[in-house]
Write a protein that binds this DNA or RNA. Sequence first.
RNA 1: GCCCUGGUGGUGGAAUCGGUAGACACGUCGGACUUAAAAUCCGAUGAGGCUAAUAACUUCGUGCCAGUUCAAGUCUGGCCCAGGGCACCA
Length: 821
Amino acid sequence: MLEKEYYAQKFEEKWMNKWEETNPYKALNNSDKPKFYALSMLPYPSGKLHMGHVRNYTITDVIARFKKAQGYNVLHPMGWDSFGLPAENAAIQHGADPETWTLENIKYMKQQLKRLGLSVDWSREVTTCLPDYYKWTQWLFLQLYKKGLAYKKTAPVNWCEKCHTVLANEQVIDGKCWRCDTEVTKKNLSQWFLKITEYSEELLNDLEKLKGWGDNVKTMQHNWIGKSKGAILKFKVKEIEGLEIPVYTTRADTVYGITYLVVAPEYPDIEKLTTPENKEKVEEYRNNAKKLSEIERLSTERIKTGVPLGTHIINPFTGRVCPVLVADYALVDYGTGAVMAVPYHDERDFDFAKKYNLPMIQVITGDGFEEGKCYTEKGTLVNSEQFTGMDSVKAREEITKYAAEKGFGEFKTQYRLRDWLISRQRYWGAPIPIVYCPHCGEVALEDKDLPVLLPKDVDFSVQGKSPLATSESFKYTTCPKCGAKAERDLDTMDTFVCSSWYYLRYTDANNDKECFNRDIVNKWLPVDQYVGGIEHAVLHLLYTRFFVKALRDCNLLDFDEPIKNLLTQGMVLKDGSKMSKSKGNTVDPDDIYKNYGADTARLFILSDSPPARDFDWTDAGVEGCYKFLARVYRLYSKFEGKIKLEYNFDVKNLSKHDENLVRQAHIAVKKITNDIENEFQFNTVISRYREFTNSIYDYIKDENSINYDVLSFALMTLLKLISPVTVFMAEEIYSALGGKGSVHNLPWCEYDENLAKDSNITLIVQVNGKIKDKIEAEQGLPDCELEKLALASPKVQELTNGKTVVKTIIVPNKLVNIVVK
RNA sequence: GCCCUGGUGGUGGAAUCGGUAGACACGUCGGACUUAAAAUCCGAUGAGGCUAAUAACUUCGUGCCAGUUCAAGUCUGGCCCAGGGCACCA
């Protein structure tokens, strides 16, 4: 029996528990049905679910349920990205064990997810901080290592003083730590890197294959990879025999305009290039540069400074002798760390040359060129000997060719992308499975030695070095090669390594022999629909693409891209601004479950805004959705006992009144199906629910004229349409009406194209493109009939009277436009 | 500076192909029911003009300016603004 009024709290938990017992959402690794892999970005177990999670997982859940109803074998898994700093910081602050803290959070949040009614196959749950998972993270690291894709090197790396660890380039946002906003400094450390740059070209080219990704994400990755085509040119140093300075340039066409050369303060040969009389000034300059923060140094506003080194280069094209200077506008880690300066045709060189009174030579001219002003556009070469008169774009090619022939240059493609630094000086991560032996050096562990378990006897409070160094039991081991006493690597891996392959593990989550079975992973991948936040555009979403390509080359799987379709959902705002604890405008999902039920939360978070846009959470909106659910529920409650699960009618014999409702049902099915298939426009889907519900209310206004077969058809259609969104209410109603099994196992509704439109049309009558009349007419009248109808309109006659009809435009079933003079 | 996304009522947002701009809601106002309130149900709601009028009619209206077209929120060109990304990248 249904209650008289909708009260979600009475039945939501009942169904949650029932589904827990029966696991109706189990995905099968062998099924005849076509597969559909619906994936959400896995949560970090921070303690409680927030509304961003609710939005993310509701979207994925509705997609998964829709596809299931359409007959797909759906894989919709969930897991925990559970290594990372917050657990460790909690350990430091409250003396808790990071593992206990994390697992407790998982337990709580898992309950919250279940309460949200997700159709997740929990038998495939993955927890990245547990040994049965990180064993395979370590194993995969070793595969990359063996393939030469993981290497250790000493380099200046990004250091966050607050997090006490290094960061990857992608984790530095505007010179600050992505996690805590602390300004990042540089440190020289020996660290592990993954060779993502080996895949620069493929990562860039394959973006084109990703038709199901938004342009915003693709452009971000495109910019991040930052490909540019140019040339390396080598300049002999006049004072030092055998020493050359190579530069990278995209403007080889301007070589005849070079008047000086600039090297970065960290340029390796800088000391050789400095003459004794300049030594003091140069060192002072370099020390100052070191002190400048990354943010200051990267500011384009800053006035450019530099000092001469005292040495010179000879321009091989002109024989001209040009001074070499150090200036911090040259960057050591891009190109060669040295820049050829052509002040007349480069803004930066221009500013710098003006400040220090360095000479300028014009070598390009073109439209908009002005004497004495910097000209950076394309044009025609001047003052360039045999290249004078050549188009500048062509000259780039020709001059580089010339340089190559003469042996002082070559073509060069440059990328901005850097290798991925994955060492972290923190405890709560997967240990790096490498040991250092005094005899054998760097040695990879063997498979049988995995996992390298995290030790418990650790002092978390150490700062500036890895906490693992404080564990004697962990630090010392024996060399797998020679058995001598050896030391382990004391860093852990970036958590983004763990999250780069979790969705592969879902396909075969309980396999304890392999990280995943090759056939199974090939079968499920690529992910058909991935849903998550845009903030991972150049983090997770780039790393994971690299990972799959690397694992393919390690011969572990057979596809090139992991994600076929990507939906990046917008943020959840509260009353127009970002939800945050400091502003005190957060909404706790538990409160919503308690006061309105999970169905209301699900319905509301999908309404109002399309998924990709930001969503504004308002109390009034929640209230409105709750009322709508109550309105739907009342329909079923009111007619309980009269609603038939099996109904029977022939549309041809129905009254206009009945036929109209049947049509409204078919229209609703058609539009809702299309809206979901067309970029998951759930906001309009929910509008259609309301429209169709309003139609049913219209239909029942006169209780005496109700045909219960027709009404049952409409109500059962509505129930099925709404079931992916309001999962509990749909099940409750279906069960109360005596439905067998679960409403969530019913197939999706079909529609009849002929019935999915109104029987009549409103013909729009225009005169000279302006609407003058609207006429009710039958569907499908021929053009000549429509024209007759339009011309018969009194208003049209009034307006055409005494004028000539030039032409008539007819759009079938829609519009007639009469053009008069 | 370069790139991406967007700009529609008081608000969130609708509008396959160029073909009724503002679906569906929120809000507001009014009505029914009620002793009263809540809930519910019904109705009005882009701006202006004309009007006794809520009827009829009419003008304007999708960031701005042009253009194409019988017809433009939608297409083309040029701008403006907002949000996001990249950037002393040579």
